[in-house]
Design a protein around this nucleic acid. Structure first.
Lengths: 226, 226
DNA sequence: AGTGTATGTTAGTCTGGACTAAAATTATGC
DNA sequence: GCATAATTTTAGTCCAGACTAACATACACT
């Protein structure tokens, strides 16, 4: 059978929800995709028929090797599309995720390959999420959470969580994007907030909003070669 | 109501079939889209409900002003996508039409606008078909059919018919693409064939296969500005 | 261990877009 | 001008993918 766009959406959602071969629940995926739990159950069954997931009633599903390979290539496609949108077309970081959601199902493999080489084989999307390589292997990026930094420490922003579009728009507006250099001014353990200095301006954010990278390997956009 | 991808396909097909406000028949569109006549009838009705076409039973449909405007923007999107695929990604002329068919429904307006400016507002697709401008107005390109040339005359290829993928592949392989300079060696009126000289090699083609341009305005690919 | 709440699944429905087969209409050939 | 051919429309079906409402299971707490 053919893999439909809907099946691709579910596969990606499972891939992104599942940490090291854990089962993923119906409601988790339903929430992530904005879909009813009943629809998710139905799709879990279809995916199980295709041997893309292993599904056990009432206890969730996990990707098979086949499913994981496919999902990795779909995530790769999505993240390369995002990189292309920002780096080549100059579209804002806060706009590319929904655009890539729309576009990804329609991008032929040849186009993805061209994106990859034009962008010089990037290993992160513009938000800092890792891009699986052609064999589905994720680069390991050893980021530290912002919460792990002590007051006074400096770091380079490496990744933003993609969950909340509203929040993302705000962070981009404030300049808190991958590559930005920050310094921790103060930590507020009680309410889980943290005060940052960002090139002179000061900013208060949640400790889980961004991930910091404390080594020199900044995933900044490179100039595409054409 | 929303315009679905299927509706877009039908609108484009009608737009491309209809010469100056003529009615277009059910079977014409069915053939073009590879779909049954019954499906086309059903869609004509849906489009009529949206005031995108004027539909009269048994005698066909024609685009309304609203439908024509929308169709023009869809054709624009398709042809700009093709130009992008050839000029920026370096994909072969004979492969881009089906790719653009897949991609077009998923390309947001912002992306189309970026394509347009990166490509420096091209007025033809890579096959030489005109690209409507933002107001839906087609550039008039005054090409002469190949059949109109006499033996000995020279011309620049301006357009290829997109109908037959197999034929298109062959022509591209032979180098008979927009921008190529040719000379008519001999005309065979009986079997409707014509012998061309193409930079030293000789080639026999049908008289309606390509359109020739006898002025200097060659729609060659330009270097994209980035 | 039993019971209440969370979460999951089943059953039944809807919609868009395709199909085939049969009926209706228009076009064509003699 | 009428019979037949071609085209178009209708009627009925199917499938994917969503939904809601009702039922089933699992988990958590006393």
């Amino acid at each position: 059978m053919q893999i439909s766009p809907a099946m691709e959406d579910y596969l990606m959602a499972i891939y992104r929800s599942q940490t090291v071969a854990e089962r993923v629940s119906t409601s988790q995926i339903a929430r992530r995709l904005g879909v009813s739990a009943a629809s998710t159950t139905a799709m879990f069954k279809r995916l199980a028929e295709e041997a893309l997931v292993e599904y056990h009633e009432y206890t969730g599903a996990s990707l098979t090797a086949k499913g994981e390979g496919l999902a990795a290539s779909l995530v790769r496609r999505h993240r390369l599309a995002e990189r292309f949108l920002t780096d080549v077309l100059g579209i804002g970081l806060d706009q590319v995720d929904p655009m890539a959601d729309r576009m990804e199902h329609a991008l032929p493999p040849e186009v993805i390959d061209r994106f990859d080489s034009i962008l010089q084989e990037p290993h992160t999307c513009p938000h800092g999420q890792p891009i699986p390589d052609k064999d589905g292997v994720l680069p390991d990026l050893h980021y530290s959470p912002l919460a792990s930094l002590a007051a006074g420490e400096e770091a380079t922003i490496a990744r933003l969580e993609e969950g909340d579009p509203e929040l993302l728009r705000y962070l981009v507006e404030q300049g808190l994007v991958p590559g930005a250099r920050i310094r921790v001014v103060e930590k507020h353990p009680v309410d889980d907030l943290i005060t940052l200095d960002l090139g002179g301006t000061s900013l208060v954010v949640g400790q889980r909003v961004v991930a910091a990278l404390d080594v020199g390997d900044v995933p900044a956009p490179r100039t595409p070669r054409l």
